[in-house]
């Protein structure tokens, strides 16, 4: 681990100033992502500004929706009654991620800012443009089992690993920040970037820009998150998807779909979403929607499995969200989100 100074932030302004003026400085909140990367020698900040103590932990009603403080833990947000009831996709995504211990530490700002699980990124002895710009991309031509189908570049084919981010993208959440240039609101779908020629930049945040809250806009529809992983718990998604449906009687008024595990950011699918608007939900319609969602997928050597997996997953998510099929477990829990359920005689408790 590279030596660094550690400082507790006194207030938002001080935190922003301390990081903004030092290009080698970084924030730390729960530390569950940051500390791993320090230990791997991937991040080498010379100053860590701990923002976990800042009073940004409240979850409150806000403009008909919910404002989630940046420092609310993943656990607090997942079990917050208004979120679990009105935005079950968010609770499902959170509770299907990581482990209880990690969720108790992890914060709502830190989670979408965690970095890729591309294994090459975490090995300083491998080339990686994201970690060391210009060194090359080992995943292209290497072991690219967990990599992207959409929006990748010749510089980087990594995926974003956060489950939460996928749900937030489908719900058109907004991110409140305060930075060296003052405060602003960012559409969640604009928070993350595609790799392009600058894969070392994951987000559109400025250096030293502090997330203060994540806002869920008012929403009267149904939402749902589904996740496939290589073990029943405590594993990142191979593929996931979040669906938000607003109904108008028996018809779908508006649909939003975000795919996870397939791109450098949660992958919204406007063409597929458009197919659903004004339609009655049927399995056939959902098949066509899924086909459209994956029409432009560009697989690498080891990740083509994500295409059928992702399509099947999206069909199921739409069937379950529209009520054509029952959820695999209670809405707003990991049991609803976890494809395959748990081992044992009964897959999911009801």
């Amino acid at each position: 681990m590279h030596p660094f100074q550690y400082q507790r932030a006194e207030n938002n302004g001080q935190a922003v100033a301390a990081v903004a003026k030092n290009p080698e400085a970084a924030f730390i909140a729960g530390g569950t992502s940051q500390v791993d990367l320090l230990k791997e020698g991937v991040h080498k900040p010379n100053l860590l500004v701990d923002v976990a103590g800042l009073p940004l932990r409240q979850i409150t009603d806000f403009e008909g929706g919910v404002r989630i403080g940046a420092n609310a833990t993943n656990t607090e947000a997942a079990y917050f009654p208004a979120i679990q009831a009105r935005y079950p996709a968010v609770s499902e995504a959170l509770l299907a991620g990581a482990s209880v211990q990690i969720r108790n530490m992890a914060t709502m700002a830190g989670n979408p800012l965690q970095r890729t699980r591309c294994p090459y990124f975490r090995d300083p002895d491998q080339p990686c443009n994201k970690r060391t710009p210009g060194s090359g991309c080992a995943a292209i031509g290497g072991y690219n089992h967990v990599h992207a189908l959409f929006g990748a570049s010749e510089a980087c084919v990594a995926t974003h690993p956060s489950d939460l981010a996928v749900a937030l993208a489908a719900l058109d959440a907004r991110v409140q920040t305060t930075g060296p240039q003052g405060s602003r609101t960012i559409a969640f779908t604009d928070l993350h970037r595609l790799p392009g020629t600058t894969p070392h930049l994951d987000t559109t945040l400025a250096h030293g820009e502090l997330i203060t809250s994540i806002d869920l806009p008012a929403f009267a529809g149904r939402s749902h998150y589904l996740k496939v992983r290589e073990r029943a718990s405590y594993a990142y998604a191979l593929a996931s998807c979040a669906v938000a449906l607003e109904m108008d009687g028996p018809k779908i008024k508006r649909a939003r779909i975000a795919l996870g595990g397939v791109a450098h950011k949660p992958w919204r699918t406007p063409a597929a979403e458009a197919l659903l608007a004004g339609q009655r939900p049927t399995e056939k319609l959902f098949q066509a929607t899924a086909a459209a969602a994956f029409a432009d997928a560009k697989p690498l050597e080891h990740n083509a499995y994500k295409i059928p997996m992702g399509r099947n997953l999206l069909v199921r998510a739409l069937l379950e969200t529209s009520g054509l099929q029952p959820l695999a477990g209670p809405a707003g829990t990991a049991f609803a989100a976890s494809v395959g359920g748990m081992a044992g005689q009964v897959a999911t408790p009801n």
Partner: peptide
Amino acid sequence: RVDEASGSVRVAQ
């Protein structure tokens, strides 16, 4: 139990 859509296997017993 094999979930055909995702290829997930769970051991029931």
